[in-house]
Design a protein around this nucleic acid. Structure first.
Lengths: 342, 342
DNA sequence: GCACACTGCGCAACTGTTTGCACAAAAATT
DNA sequence: AATTTTTGTGCAAACAGTTGCGCAGTGTGC
């Protein structure tokens, strides 16, 4: 047990050559004789030599690893995005170190600090809902560490970003609701600090305006992600004098908890109220009624982010203009909005 | 941009002392004068010095990182277990590198190899469903690299493991079904190679036997995890001449797809057939009817695994006898098994 | 006045790998 | 035969940090 890994030195000593020669032989350097090379290859195979990645990273002053910081991996979007990142990163020879900020800015800062000192090659980040200060990102940029945002991005930092068009997605969803005859449409948004929630709010407002519907501010709620917060905000909507005919939610989880509040109030879905979620989590097609929702290309999002990051890492000498990739999302229409058109 | 991180050497040169002195001053070594220490601390703060973890890891011949290998992070159990691992590991100063085997043994082997060369401090692993050869684990043990299994373990390898009592959990579930008056009880198992599925099968069989019910082999199915496979096996059960009165499934996903097959056949749940799942995924309380299921302590499982691993890492000189931690699971009774007792 | 202890700091080795340079021997060219 | 080129190999430095040891210089005790 506890046998040390075979090193170049081990091979060199057994063969009575220098470490440098062994290193070059393994790389098939032209200046090493065929005879020496073959001896080295043979022994390396016998002793199961594998280069020590840690030593290599140290020498290159950089780990072959990418730091991935997401709010929570149990959110389906992040779990799938991580698969996309892993897929591409591994193919390019990078490991990924996944960290959860748990929606805490302090945690996010600590993670980034920790990973900087570990010399990760770059970062792929989706902001915590709390994050309202961006010093830790500008710090990355000052140090020249590659950075890509995805999904929850940071507009004040000039970095690569991969997102969907949240404005348009929510516009389309509201448009769909209007087309089924709804006019009193509510928006159950996420925390007010979450930018993408506000982008969706804008899309919602624009769609209403474009259809000649005045926005009723009482129909716009901002809730936290926990069940209790959603329920209490949803109750404000459905127990009011004029419950909405439709509700667009910021996420499927919020939509589902909103459905619970509706059922509690005795409202039938979709007859009394239509509901639209966001993310197309697998659960949405299993519940009753199946939920109309917006499918985000999580895997592709992760993969694209990884591509952008690896491009930055491998061209660290040249300055690349930050790019904004907007992926398309799809409205998946299911029973929860299945009203007869008027 | 691209400013190098401050190193001990930078501090040493500015202060005209040796690197060794700076290193010791930062560690408050008694042999360094107060004056020197203060000068070092001041400059270190000014230049934002942070020790380079990569260099430290290199020197210690080991990364301060733990390799975590799971089948898929989208499975709720693994996502929660990862949170538990991260929670404990971070508190102890370790990062975690999460990799998905995607249920492939080849991928699992490749990941382990890759992480070995990166000199991770240890591994926390849940087997892929395909894994039937354990050389890559015995190899870890020969190299003296700490290893902990959780959930899907490997009985042939003598390592720490954290599991629930799958036999008992499934026994209890079947017992519950019998207590509600069911006698024709089916088992929708996972792939035949997955050990825990077979443990649950044994619990199922024992519970039937203890209640004087003969096991009907036609009521035992082994399916893959994809929806189509589950549906086709479930149909064999429900379209037969004598559909079962109850079905115990290996996972919530399998249970839910089995429910779909039941509904398709016109069977009402729980009136015609009771269903029990496994894992208590959040979706189980949202579907109609809410699913009776077995709650596994995912977070605790991960945390315990991390504890055992860190213990191994930090006592690598002494040999610790591998330990088997069995955590308790809980049967959560919901509507899907709510029949009147006979 | 001499031995001894203590104080404050630097030297050097070590971790595994790569790579520019040097240098000898062999081969090729004058 | 003398020079140049080519070939095959080794030396040493570099990456950032830690740590045993040594070595001055100062202080203490008898």
């Amino acid at each position: 047990m506890n046998k040390r890994q075979t090193t170049l030195k081990d091979l060199a000593e057994k063969l009575n050559v220098s470490v440098a020669t062994v290193s070059r032989a393994l790389k098939d350097h032209p200046r090493i004789s065929q005879k020496t090379k073959e001896a080295v290859w043979q022994l390396a195979a016998d002793l199961d030599y594998e280069p020590n990645q840690l030593a290599l990273s140290f020498r290159n002053r950089q780990m072959n690893a990418i730091g991935v910081v997401v709010p929570k991996i149990i959110y389906h979007l992040y779990a799938t995005a991580i698969s996309g990142i892993e897929d591409y990163a591994n193919a390019q020879g990078y490991n990924i170190i996944i960290c959860q900020s748990n929606e805490s800015m302090e945690r996010e800062k600590a993670i980034i600090n920790e990973l900087i000192t570990s010399q990760v090659a770059g970062f792929i980040i989706s902001l915590s809902s709390e994050t309202n200060n961006f010093d830790h990102f500008t710090r990355l940029q000052k140090k020249g560490i590659p950075l890509v945002f995805f999904n929850r991005e940071c507009e004040d930092v000039d970095a690569d970003r991969v997102i969907i068009d949240n404005f348009q997605a929510s516009y389309d969803a509201v448009d769909h609701l209007i087309s089924t005859g709804c006019r009193r449409i509510a928006y159950m948004g996420g925390p007010a600090e979450v930018q993408i929630s506000n982008h969706r709010l804008k899309g919602y407002q624009k769609a209403l305006a474009d259809n000649g519907i005045t926005v009723d501010e009482r129909l716009v709620q901002h809730c936290e992600f926990d069940k209790e917060s959603v329920l209490s905000h949803a109750r404000r909507l459905v127990y009011g004098p004029q419950p909405p005919e439709a509700i667009l939610a910021f996420s499927d989880q919020i939509a589902i908890n909103t459905m619970i509040a509706c059922k509690e109030r005795g409202l039938k879905i979709p007859e009394d109220v239509s509901i639209v979620g966001f993310n197309n989590e697998p659960v949405t097609e299993l519940i009753e009624p199946p939920l109309t929702t917006i499918d985000q290309p999580g895997f592709l999002m992760g993969k694209t982010a990884a591509e952008l990051l690896v491009r930055q890492i491998e061209n660290s000498d040249t300055v690349i203009k930050p790019e904004k990739r907007i992926l398309s999302s799809t409205l998946i229409i299911r029973k929860s909005t299945n009203r007869n058109r008027l």
